[in-house]
Design a protein around this nucleic acid. Sequence first.
RNA 1: GCCGAAGUAGCUCAGCGGUAGAGCACCGGUUUCGUAAACCGUAGGUCGAGGGUUCGAUCCCCUCCUUCGGCUCCA
Length: 702
Amino acid sequence: MTCPSALERMTGPVQEETPDSERKTPDQRAKMSDIERLRHSCAHVLATAIAKLWPDAQFAAGPPVENGFYYDVDLAHRISPDDFAKIEAEMKVVVKANQVFEKVVVTRDQALADAQKGRLAALGDRAVPSRFKLDIVQGIPEGESITYFKNGEFIDLCAGPHVMRTGNIGAFKLTHVASAYYKGDEKNPQLQRIYGTAFKNKTEMEAYFTMIEESKKRDHRKLGAEMGLYVMDTEYVGPGLPLWLPNGTAIVEELEKLAKETEFAAGYVRVRTPHIAKEKMYKTSGHLPYYAESMFPPMEFDENEKLRSELEIKTERLWAQVCELSRADAKLRGVDEENAMTYVEKVLLGEEAALGKLPPRISELYTEHRSASKALRNLPDAEFYFLKAMNCPHHHRIFAAEPRSYRDLPLRLAEYGCCYRYEQSGELLGLMRVRSLNMNDAHIYCTTEQFATEFNAVNEMYLKYFKIFGLEKYQMRFSTHSKEGLGKKYVDEPELWIQTETMVRDVLKNSGINFVEVSNEAAFYGPKIDVQVWSAIGREFTIATNQVDFAVPKRFGLVYKDRDNSEKTPLCIHRAPLGTHERFIAFLIEHYAGNFPLWLAPEQVRVLTIGDDDALVNYAREIVTELRASMVRAEGDFGTDKINGKVQRAEQAKVHTMLVIGPRDMAASAVSIRVHGKGNVGVKPRAEAVSDILAAIKARTA
RNA sequence: GCCGAAGUAGCUCAGCGGUAGAGCACCGGUUUCGUAAACCGUAGGUCGAGGGUUCGAUCCCCUCCUUCGGCUCCA
């Protein structure tokens, strides 16, 4: 289904990932690709070098990762990139020595004893135990074999696998150093994580670093600023809240147009919902307990604020008066001070007959107090409103707004809903991670029988989009639940989980879509698919998500009337093929290096005049007007600059098509066409040039 | 949120205890040029914010904000 990208050819097929905090099973280890094996081995070489330079280093984990490897180390010396040359030199010695990676099977007791002696992840015995290794040994399940890998004097607790010899590592380089918690838990000590990468040979490594350089040039934050797509006004608007400038908005609206056309053809209907909703919405949906901290704090909204405070003051005042008078009355009746209130309350509350005994003024005040506090109690509570972090609950309420029949299904509600998520400050990253986001969202309500067709149609839509954007490599990550998470991370519906996961798996298998299955990463309400794509330079992006929801419609009590007159809860498919505008455009900027195809280019056409002669400018202006009348984003540059200057400015602004107009063109009713990055492509009659442009935009061709 | 680094004109950067600098862009002129920069000039800054040290702070110290590199998280 997919062509291997340059990166894939370099790094081998993408593997299922396992979070650091979880151990890889022996089964997963067996699947380790050649390049991962090599990188894992290089991590050992790194540790060998560090152990030589700083013998007191304590090592934790050193796995291969997507583009390389790392080793986590606890060390008093703070390793900085300045140390890399020194470490790499030691690593080179190890690689040159061509040491054998020798696998040694040991008993648990032996491993524990060695860890105590500080012998693990070290070149010899040490005064202090290898404390992380000790912890890891203790975590290995009974019955699983415990192995070391030994290269030279360096012994590491490791399940492998490794390459045969250190000399098999053809090229390596340390890249950066970061911090990480042991086992990814912030309660654990913080370690230094030293990253590096390794390849079979130097050529492959150079290709990799070329790609990294290229991705820096294509960084959406850099290009987004240069091209005037968006700005972050952190001072007045806030971090993670992008302002879309006219150029960026043009792209946003083209994507919306694409989605609207595609969805309309596929039988979706459009809806619009507010940006906020009451607390009840998210209590009902079940999002609040799971996601409260990543939602913006609620706004308290009290319609009766004034009345409430008046009543509060009034009840307090009345009660104070009642108390005062009652004490005086009790005293009069000879009840001692200590029991005065008890006495009065008893009379007031219970003994009706005794009412008459009290001075009428107290009864009166008491009655007044009672009615005021009743009024206070009866005031509706203040409401809490949340900014919506997702559109689904609003759509569920649209489903609930009318009685639904099985004839209405599937019902496909689509909206470019603007959501707000309080992403942690350290998470914000240009447009990739933001706090306000526009989702290409839709919710499909369907019956169990309709599910496979609907789910498949959604996947087909993804593929259609991939084609438009020229994405050759993609992968669907099918995330399922875990039994242990039921009732915690996941709604406690074991049968529905199995049932929906089976349905999704069957659809994926039958359609031949490229997917991998990952357990324990589902949404809380059902299995999901994360859509990964690879940009033109081979970087991976997770752009979209597609989820099954068998839980939340039930929580909202959504039902449709089936053929047999029974009420049934629909299944819901959440889908957003273009993800969020923000992330998708960030991806497109890198993918196209800012050189957008005509239909997406913020400025599609710029008409440049050679000179500023009146007749010429009029002719050029006519062309701009004609194009704009057909919704082409065309501008004119009619100034006094030399044509070279105008061309350069247009090229730098990445204007897709430049129409250069000089006296010769005007005389022939023609235009001279120049395409961004391609140079002068020749002269055409004006009418033909215009119709070509319109046709290319309509076809959304590159 | 956590660890580390950085914030000087719209952009790219220089300066680093003693009056704040350049190029490009902007603006005003001049130039009339056939496909990646014609020329001249004006203007532009609380040197991220607040506090401290100092005779004097863009520079040194502290706090905060934001950004960047990671970690954690991602409905």
